[in-house]
C-alpha cells in the first residue's frame, strides 16, 4: 500500500517555504538587483528624452513628445558628415592596422625560443594598456610639441629646418590617433591569441618539421588555424566596440586647432549634452551611435560565422 505521507513529502513545498529556506541566498542577490535597476535600467528609460523636448525644468516623463525631430536635426547638421567621417575613418584605420598587427605580433612572440626573453617582451608590451589615456595623451602631446622629442630628433638629423606643428595640424590628427592607439593596445591584443596558442598540440609542429615544413608554412598551416576561433571572437568584440571606445583618447588629444578632424560621435555627444546642455539632441545622437554599433555587431557575427564554424584555411 502506498504511504500517503511520502507522496505528501514529494510535493513541492510552498513558495514562501522555499523562499524562507533560501533567504540567505536571496539576501545575497538583491543588492545587485537594486543596483541594476538604479544604475542600468532607470537610465535606459531615460533614453526616451531623445524623442522629447527635454529641458532642465522638465522631468523625464513630463517633457513634451517631439518624435524624430532631434534625429532629423542631427542628420541636417553641417557637422554630421564631419563627425561621421572622423568616427568611421579613425575606427577603420585603427582596426586595419590594430587587428592584423596583434595577430602578427602574437605569432612572432610565440616563436621566441628563450622563455625568459619571451616573458620580458610580454611584460613590456602589456604595460601601456594599464596606463590611462591622460598619461599617454600627455606623453604624446609632449613628444610632438615644437620642442618635443620628435621635432628635435628630426631637426638634429637635418630632415626639417623648423618644427612641425603636429598637434595643431588637422591633417595629422588621424595618424596620431591611430598610431598612438596602436602603440598602447597592440601588446595587450596578443594576450588571448598567445593563451590559445599554448593549447595547440606540439606534435603538429614536430610532424611538420619532419616533413620539411618551413617556419612560414608552420605559421600559416598550424598556428593561425589553431587560433581561428579566437580571431573570430576578437573580430566580433572589436567591431562592436569600434564606435564607443575612443572618448578618453579623443578628449585628451583634441584641441581647437585639430577639431575638424578629431571630433567623433562620442565627443560630440559629450560636448552637446554635458557641456552645452542640449540633452535631447545629444541623446538622439547617442541612440544613433548605438543603432549603428548594433548593426555592425550583427553584420560581423554573420560574417565571422563562416570563419568559426567551417575552415576557410
Amino acid at each position: 500500500m502506498e504511504d500517503s505521507s511520502t507522496t505528501h513529502k514529494n510535493k513541492k513545498p510552498s513558495f514562501f517555504r522555499r523562499f524562507k529556506d533560501q533567504a540567505f541566498y536571496q539576501a545575497m542577490i538583491w543588492p545587485s538587483v537594486i543596483l541594476m535597476i538604479l544604475f542600468n535600467f532607470i537610465p535606459m528609460y531615460g533614453l526616451i528624452i531623445a524623442f522629447k523636448n527635454y529641458t532642465v525644468l522638465d522631468t523625464i516623463g513630463g517633457a513634451p513628445w517631439v518624435g524624430f525631430e532631434y534625429f532629423q536635426e542631427f542628420f541636417k547638421d553641417p557637422l554630421f558628415w564631419t563627425v561621421m567621417k572622423n568616427t568611421f575613418g579613425i575606427a577603420f584605420f585603427k582596426m586595419l592596422i590594430g587587428f592584423p598587427g596583434a595577430i602578427m605580433l602574437a605569432v612572432l612572440i610565440n616563436e621566441v625560443a628563450n622563455v625568459h626573453f619571451k616573458k620580458f617582451v610580454q611584460t613590456i608590451s602589456y604595460l601601456p594598456h594599464f596606463l590611462s589615456w591622460v598619461i599617454l595623451g600627455g606623453m604624446v602631446i609632449m613628444w610632438l610639441s615644437d620642442t618635443g622629442f620628435l621635432n628635435s630628433l628630426l631637426m638634429d638629423l637635418k630632415v626639417i629646418s623648423k618644427p612641425i606643428e603636429f598637434m595643431a595640424d588637422p591633417n595629422k590628427y588621424w595618424a596620431i590617433a591611430v598610431l598612438s592607439d596602436f602603440w598602447k593596445e597592440v601588446g595587450w591584443g596578443t594576450i588571448l591569441y598567445l593563451a590559445s596558442m599554448t593549447a595547440i598540440d606540439p606534435s603538429l609542429y614536430e610532424a611538420a618539421k619532419i616533413d620539411g615544413a618551413t617556419k612560414w608554412q608552420q605559421i600559416i598551416h598550424i598556428t593561425i588555424p589553431g587560433i581561428r576561433q579566437m580571431i573570430a571572437l576578437n573580430l566580433i568584440l572589436s567591431i562592436g566596440g569600434l564606435l564607443g571606445s575612443n572618448l578618453d583618447q579623443t578628449l585628451v588629444l583634441q584641441n581647437s586647432l585639430n577639431y575638424a578632424s578629431s571630433e567623433v560621435l562620442n565627443s560630440y555627444v559629450f560636448k552637446m549634452g554635458i557641456k552645452q546642455g542640449n540633452f535631447s539632441y545629444a541623446t538622439a545622437v547617442g541612440i544613433f551611435v548605438s543603432v549603428v554599433s548594433l548593426i555592425l555587431i550583427v553584420l560581423s557575427r554573420w560574417g565571422t560565422r563562416k570563419i568559426s564554424d567551417k575552415s576557410v584555411f
Binding site: 537610465p43 531615460g46 527635454y54 549634452g273 545629444a282
Partner: peptide
C-alpha cells in the same frame, strides 16, 4: 534552485549589451 534565478540572469545579460548612454545616465544620476 534560487527563486528568480533565470530573471536575474536575463537582467544581468541585458546590462552587458544595453545601456542608457551618456546623457540619460547623467540626468538620472
Amino acid at each position: 534552485d534560487l527563486i528568480g534565478r533565470k530573471w536575474f540572469e536575463i537582467m544581468g545579460i541585458l546590462t552587458m549589451f544595453v545601456n542608457g548612454g551618456m546623457i540619460p545616465t547623467f540626468l538620472v544620476f
